[in-house]
Amino acid sequence: MSGGTGTDGPVERMRRRAVPLFVLPMAAVLALVAGWPLARTLWFSLTDATLATLDDHAVIGLENYYWLGLDPVWWRAVGNTLLFAGVSVTLETALGFALALVLNRRLPLRGVLRAVVLIPWAIPTVVSAQMWAWMLHDLYGVVNTILLALGLIAAPLAWTADPALALPAVIAVDVWKSTPFMTLLILAALQLVPGELYEAARVDGVPAHRVFLDITLPLVWPAVMVAVIFRTLDALRVFDLMYVLTGNSRETMSMSVYARQHLIEFQDVGYGSAASSALVLVVALVTALAITAGRLRLGDGEPER
């Protein structure tokens, strides 16, 4: 922190005077819509509250967590979510990198191309899930039609209903939808690499793959890591895709789908809150791991002087 280090002029004093009034409204709203509800969720997880008896519940300690730990469906949801997050973010990063490298080249119509690549990102998740649900339809889906015509499959596949295919299908849709985000962020980082570096490497006759590994990758790595963390956290809370594509099916159920099913559909607020709290714990663990592994310093940056 830079508080009170040397240069404490009139500007600094003016800025500091403004702090309480400037920050408090925002902090109060966040406390109302985030802090308080989260605290309540944690509290409910220790009670037997139901949707109908929110005000009138008994504390039952860790019982909800005990049942949660014994439910194979919950562990399935944990596994699904981790697998979904791991596979889709890996694929999105690899594909996003490839696309960014192509788009970073001098191409005619580069602006148009970049805009086209953004299309999937601009489509609401629910809408893209519906579009793909229709394309993956077992009887009338265009994906089956194309694969049959190419001779890649012998009979139509039930993409969203077949237990072995449902999660891969969900992952494929997520990759389609979220790769543009990765592409954009990686492209922005690529464009900050000074052109002289490439020029010098070309003059020295450095082979292309060494240029990529020794120049490009180290320079864009921090930006890629930030993007990976953001996407991972986003993937861990996934809800819309599974809910729309496969409903409450156990084969694809994510932790968020599981928690909401218990909270709202089964109206079991106590147990559902325990599942939600466990999800928060998983997200916190993954974040801590990622930040340590990526050696990132988020939220840093001194105030301007």
């Binding site: 509800p37 309540r40 969720t41 509250a49 956290l233 861990l236 607020v269 559902g272 809150s273 974040t287």
Partner: peptide, 12 residues
């Protein structure tokens, strides 16, 4: 970066 479902019951 919060999972939205974590505040669902409290927000309700």
């Amino acid at each position: 970066m919060f999972p939205q479902v974590a505040v669902l019951s409290g927000l309700f």
